[in-house]
Lab assay of single mutants.
Amino acid sequence: NSLAEAKVLANRELDKYGVSDYYKNLINNAKTVEGVKALIDEILA
């Protein structure tokens, strides 16, 4: 998966839960796919 794909999928996942734009910005600023995954795990914990 590319970083861009990971960000799109992460933001879709956040949308399902009604997560605020603050967290979407964190996702969009992530530098690695692993970073995106770690943020998602933390946000949805």
Rank of each mutant, 00 (worst) to 15 (best):
V36Q: 00
K24N: 03
A10C: 04
T32G: 03
L3D: 01
G18N: 11
K16M: 07
E34F: 05
N11A: 10
K24L: 05
N1V: 15
Y23N: 03
V19H: 09
A30Q: 12
N11T: 09
E13W: 13
R12A: 15
L44T: 08
Y23F: 13
K37N: 10
E13G: 03
S20R: 08
L44E: 03
L44Y: 07
K16Y: 08
N28M: 11
Y22I: 06
I40S: 03
A4T: 10
N25I: 08
D21M: 09
L9C: 06
N25K: 11
K16N: 08
A45G: 13
V33K: 05
L3Y: 01
L3I: 04
R12N: 12
D41E: 13
S2A: 14
E13Y: 14
A30T: 05
A30E: 09
Y23P: 01
V8K: 15
A10R: 00
L14E: 00
S2R: 10
V8F: 14
I40C: 03
L39G: 01
E13F: 14
G18Y: 07
E42N: 13
E42S: 13
I43D: 00
R12H: 09
K37C: 04
A30L: 06
K24P: 02
N28H: 08
E34T: 05
G18S: 08
D21W: 11
K37G: 04
V8M: 14
L9T: 11
N29E: 15
N25T: 14
S20Q: 07
K16P: 03
G18F: 10
D21R: 08
A30P: 00
I43V: 07
I40N: 01
K16D: 04
A30H: 02
Y17E: 04
L26Y: 05
K31T: 15
V8L: 14
T32D: 09
L3A: 02
S20H: 09
L3N: 00
K7E: 01
D21S: 09
D15N: 06
G35I: 09
N29R: 05
N1M: 11
V36R: 00
L26M: 09
E34A: 12
A38E: 05
D41N: 12
A38Q: 12
G18R: 06
A38L: 13
D15G: 08
N29C: 03
A10I: 03
G18Q: 09
Y23H: 07
R12P: 01
E13C: 10
A38I: 12
D41V: 13
Y17L: 15
D41K: 14
N28R: 06
S20F: 06
N11L: 08
L3V: 04
L14I: 09
E42H: 14
L39W: 03
A30I: 05
N1I: 15
E13I: 15
A38C: 07
V33I: 15
L39N: 01
K16W: 05
T32L: 02
I27S: 00
N28L: 09
K31Y: 06
A6D: 03
I27G: 00
V8Q: 14
L3F: 01
K31S: 14
V8E: 15
K7L: 06
N28P: 01
N28G: 07
K31L: 14
A6Y: 12
V36G: 00
V33C: 03
V19P: 08
N29G: 11
G35A: 15
L26P: 01
T32N: 06
S20L: 08
N1Y: 13
I40E: 03
D41Y: 12
N25Q: 13
K24M: 06
L26V: 04
N25G: 08
D41T: 14
T32C: 03
K31C: 03
K24T: 06
L14Y: 02
K24W: 05
A6S: 05
K37S: 04
V8A: 14
A6T: 08
E13V: 15
A4M: 10
L39Y: 04
L14T: 03
L44N: 04
V19I: 15
K16F: 05
E5F: 08
D21L: 10
D21C: 02
A30N: 02
A10L: 02
N29P: 00
N29S: 13
A45W: 12
E13K: 08
D15Q: 08
A38P: 01
V19Q: 06
G18E: 07
I40F: 15
E42Q: 11
A30Y: 01
R12M: 15
Y22T: 08
L3P: 01
K37E: 07
G35K: 14
S2E: 13
G35W: 06
K24G: 03
N11F: 15
N25C: 07
N1T: 13
V8H: 13
L39S: 01
D41L: 13
Y22R: 08
R12T: 11
I43S: 02
E42Y: 14
G35Q: 13
D15Y: 08
N28C: 05
E5V: 13
K24A: 06
E34K: 05
D21I: 07
V36N: 00
L26H: 04
K7I: 13
A10K: 00
E42A: 12
D41S: 07
L9F: 08
N29W: 04
I40K: 11
Y23S: 02
E42M: 15
L3Q: 01
A4S: 13
I40T: 08
I40M: 15
L26W: 08
I40G: 01
N1Q: 14
L44G: 03
D15I: 08
I27W: 00
L26E: 06
N11S: 10
K37W: 15
A38M: 13
K31H: 11
D21T: 08
N1S: 13
L9D: 12
D15T: 11
Y17Q: 07
D15R: 07
E13P: 00
N1C: 05
D41M: 14
G35N: 12
E5Q: 10
I43E: 00
V36M: 04
A30F: 02
T32W: 01
L3G: 00
L44M: 12
G18W: 05
K24D: 02
D15H: 07
N11M: 09
A38F: 11
A6P: 00
A30R: 03
E5P: 02
S2M: 10
R12K: 13
K37A: 11
S20A: 12
K24Q: 06
T32A: 02
L44D: 02
G35R: 13
Y22V: 11
L26N: 03
L26C: 04
I27N: 00
A38W: 12
K7V: 04
K7R: 04
L26R: 06
D41I: 14
G35T: 13
K31R: 07
Y17W: 15
V8I: 15
I43L: 08
N25S: 09
Y17D: 02
N29V: 08
G35E: 15
A30W: 01
I27R: 00
E5K: 07
Y22W: 12
L39D: 00
N11Y: 14
L39Q: 02
S2C: 03
T32E: 02
N11P: 00
L44P: 01
V36C: 01
V33W: 06
D15M: 11
Y23G: 03
A4K: 11
K16G: 06
N1H: 14
Y23V: 05
L9V: 10
E13Q: 12
L3M: 02
S20M: 10
A4F: 09
K16Q: 07
L44C: 01
A10G: 04
K7H: 02
V19S: 04
D41Q: 13
E13S: 06
K7G: 01
N11W: 15
L44R: 13
V33G: 02
T32F: 02
V36E: 00
Y22D: 06
I27Q: 00
N29L: 11
Y23K: 02
K7N: 01
I40L: 15
V19F: 15
K37H: 12
K7W: 02
R12Q: 15
K16E: 05
Y22Q: 08
L3E: 01
N11H: 15
A45T: 12
K16L: 10
E5A: 07
V33E: 05
I40D: 00
E34I: 04
N28D: 11
R12D: 04
V36P: 00
N29Y: 03
A30S: 07
D21Y: 08
D21G: 07
L44K: 10
N1K: 05
A38V: 10
A45Y: 12
I27F: 03
D41G: 06
E34N: 05
E42I: 14
D21V: 09
E5L: 11
A4D: 13
E42P: 03
L39E: 01
G35C: 10
V36K: 00
K16H: 07
A38G: 06
K16S: 05
S2L: 13
V33Q: 04
N28S: 09
G18T: 05
S2Q: 11
A45I: 10
T32P: 00
A6L: 14
K7P: 00
A6F: 06
S20P: 12
N25A: 14
R12Y: 11
L39V: 10
I40P: 00
D15E: 12
I40Q: 08
Y23L: 05
L44Q: 07
D15P: 01
G35L: 12
L14W: 02
L9Y: 08
N1W: 12
I43R: 01
Y23A: 04
I27D: 00
K24F: 05
L3T: 02
R12S: 11
A45V: 09
K24I: 07
L39H: 02
I43T: 02
N25R: 08
A10F: 02
Y17T: 04
A10E: 01
N29A: 09
V8S: 12
E5Y: 11
I43C: 03
D41P: 03
V33N: 03
E34M: 10
A38H: 08
A45Q: 14
V36I: 10
L9M: 14
L39K: 02
E42D: 10
E42F: 11
A10Y: 03
